[in-house]
Amino acid sequence: MIRIIRGHMIDITGIIIIALALFLFSFSSSIKDTFVIPPSWLNLNTIFLSILIEALPFVLIGVLIAGVIQIFVTEEHIQRWIPKNKVMAVIMSCIVGALFPACECGIVPIVRRLVVKGVPIHAAMGFMLTGPLINPIVIASTYMAFGNDFKIAGLRMGLGFLVAIMVAFAVSWIFKGNQFKASIISVSTHNHSKNQSLSTRFWSMLTHSIDEFFDMGKYLVMGAFLAAFVQTYMPAKSLLEAGNGPASSIIVMMGLAYVLSLCSEADAFIGASFSSIFPVSSILGFLIFGPMIDLKNTLLMLSVFRFKFVMVLLALVVSMVFITLMLLQSFL
């Protein structure tokens, strides 16, 4: 008897866990009427969950792609592909990022895996900044949102690319090493994958993906919650009314992009709705800054990189976007 139980231990645990989940499932409908919850909390909860539901597929896919990189890309590959020259490496990484369709939450686990594999930090940042900003879906949605006009979409891509290259260069001057958090001991990964069969490697990729999801999950949840909180309780109106001058309107729109944490595929329509209140340059600030770094994304990066590195990167992106737009303001 005991032997039978032991033999089916995994199945039994599975059944117990499914039963527990079903219990939660049925329990959930009965509790709804017993509490009186302030409507603003429910609004907060709805926005919070919607950000999560929207981001989860991308994070999961990102984690799985990271797993594939873990298996199939070796350090030797990376060393062969990435140019030794910093300038070339930055430009190449930005172009690869532009060709790679990703969103800002899915790209963090991928970047982390790439850095583990030996991609220099400046190249990884170039990839991370252009990936979510420049891709076909974002181009299409921006084109549509601004009345089927390529001007804004083109400026968004062009200036975004420029800013990404400048930030990546700045990173290459300031930082060396992988900039991982101290708690992350990164022992380089090679040889173990070679002498194992493909199925074994595949299996370990999946279990790694689970661990990675739990690592990032908590930061994703916190980021989504903060973004939802800001949306529910911060009156955008007073913020918007603060942006009168050319400089302050750019700052206001960038701030809005940061706290709203919208997916880069969806933010064009929101940006377009402000085009009567603000000049083109501040709309571009919203469109370029948002996909590069936002609140949700900052927390995800904190799950991987050092606090100091994330803050410096944030400051770099903010200042580069701001300076570029201020300089170009008279031409727009």
């Binding site: 959930s28 909860n45 739990f214 919650f225 009156p235």
Partner: peptide, 27 residues
Amino acid sequence: FIIVFPLLTGFLLPAKVLDASIANKKG
């Protein structure tokens, strides 16, 4: 707890349709 938090609110709290108070916040 942080990871479980959205599960709790997702299962236990009803989804709400956005209302005028959000509209006000959105300016």
